[in-house]
């Protein structure tokens, strides 16, 4: 066994275990914490592949961004004493079936593909390349999706502000941030 294999097994085990914990825990903030672990382990896999850009994006966007957002909203809405009711048996059976079906589908698809072993060592992706392709208008450029997502996010931001403003201006004497 090489160290690479060991790390791979470690990370995949973490992903599996924490994913299961995420959906089975009855405390909402713990679920978020476990989700964070899953995302961290995933980025660990990316680091193993020497795909550092992806790993760092995974860290900033998911771990540093989305999970923080989730935790923030949990902090605002729920109390520490809140717990979820245990799920009914019927529901859990159905969801287990759905999960197994999904897993079978994925495994079949993966098995269907013949992974040819490469002898080329993993290479670091050049940052300049990523930057150029992000802003290129060529066939494999990402400028269009980039812009579309930007507009989408802008719309989401405006919507969020509108929703947040619904209650009318705060009746405080000090300026609040809006």
């Amino acid at each position: 066994m090489t160290s690479n294999q060991l790390m791979f097994i470690l990370f995949s085990a973490m992903i599996v275990v924490f994913s299961i914990l995420t959906v089975t825990t009855r405390r909402i903030l713990r679920a978020a914490a476990f989700l964070l672990m899953v995302l961290l382990s995933t980025s660990g896999l990316y680091f193993m592949l020497n795909y550092q850009f992806m790993a760092a994006v995974q860290l900033t966007l998911y771990a540093g961004g989305i999970v923080v957002l989730i935790i923030f909203s949990i902090l605002l809405t729920s109390h520490i004493s809140q717990k979820f009711e245990p799920v009914e048996l019927k529901k859990s059976i159905f969801s287990a079936l759905a999960a197994v079906a999904g897993a079978i589908l994925c495994i079949l698809t993966i098995l269907d593909y013949s992974f040819s072993a490469t002898t080329v060592a993993a290479q670091e992706v050049n940052m300049k390349l990523i930057g150029k392709s992000l802003l290129s208008v060529d066939y494999d450029g990402y400028v269009l999706p980039f812009e579309v997502i930007s507009i989408l996010l802008l719309a989401a931001m405006i919507a969020a502000i509108v929703v947040a403003k619904k209650g009318g201006p705060a009746k405080t004497k000090t300026p609040t941030l809006n």
């Binding site: 605002l76 809405t77 109390h79 403003k165 705060a170 405080t172 609040t176 809006n178």
Partner: peptide
Amino acid sequence: MEEIIKEVVIDE
């Protein structure tokens, strides 16, 4: 930020 805290207060 202030706004949010104001409206969705802990334990409702």
